[in-house]
Amino acid sequence: MIIQILINGILLGGVYGLIGLGFSIVWGVTSLINLAHGSLVILGAYISFWIFQYAHIDPFVSIPLVMLSLFIIGYLMQRYIFNLAIKADVFLTLIMTFGMDVLLAQLMIVMWSADWRSIATSYQGKSLIFGGYLFPYTRLLGFVAALILTILTAYFLDRTKTGQSIKAVALDMMAARLMGVNPGKTYAITFGIGASLAGAAGSLLAVMQSFNPAVGGGITLRAFVVAILGGLGSVEGAFLGGIILGIIETFSAFYLGESFKNVVTFTLFVIILVTRPRGLLGKKYYG
């Protein structure tokens, strides 16, 4: 039984890792703690839901399309809204992104109502059985997709010119400016990437569980837990942090009950923040 719970936790953790990765990249590069991150995840879920409903395209196939939509939304959001106050005090930018969260959540209610939705794929509820353990297809595919996207993100940051300029801006904005990097645009691209990863995570969540516009807040806090657990500044760390959170949640849901899962997660969240090793705070870039 324990091994089965562990498997479920790890598979869920992959998606949590992806949620945390987008959040952590934006935070690490632009210093913006994006409280609207959870709403972007849910927005991704709704877009995936739409595509599935009207075009009958499988949510795993439509991931690139969802990511592209979210990239554009994220790019514009940062470029024409958040960049206007990006250098303000911490709590100002926090409030700003919270305002965006309120706006997005209501917008989604207007578009899709507050009802719970889910995407019912043909393979939903079916599992791969391996060594006597169950691997639900939706979770297994979700985990694989999250892993691939994490690797692609790491590759993108390390090996492409845009990725390098993002890192340069994160490290030293003045120096990057002198090298001809446009920080405003780089911030927008970074946020676009964060949003597209959120969107992808939303697609994956949509096939695993039901969702409505109100669950964004909880997702944002989970993103934060993952980013802190993994260490701000590491792509692999975010993935690992996601898996740790996935395991903790699955175990606490099993042993303490579903309703206590959140108590554990958020208490853990506060404890990590207070006792986090010093190293996590100092690093502020993607190196």
């Binding site: 809204i81 409030i95 700003m96 919270f98 305002g99 965006m100 969260d101 309120v102 706006l103 997005l104 959540a105 209501q106 917008l107 209610i109 207007v110």
Partner: peptide
């Protein structure tokens, strides 16, 4: 659209 207006005011 209460939330939308509130969000815009906040931003």
């Amino acid at each position: 659209i209460h939330g939308i207006v509130l969000g815009i005011i906040i931003i």
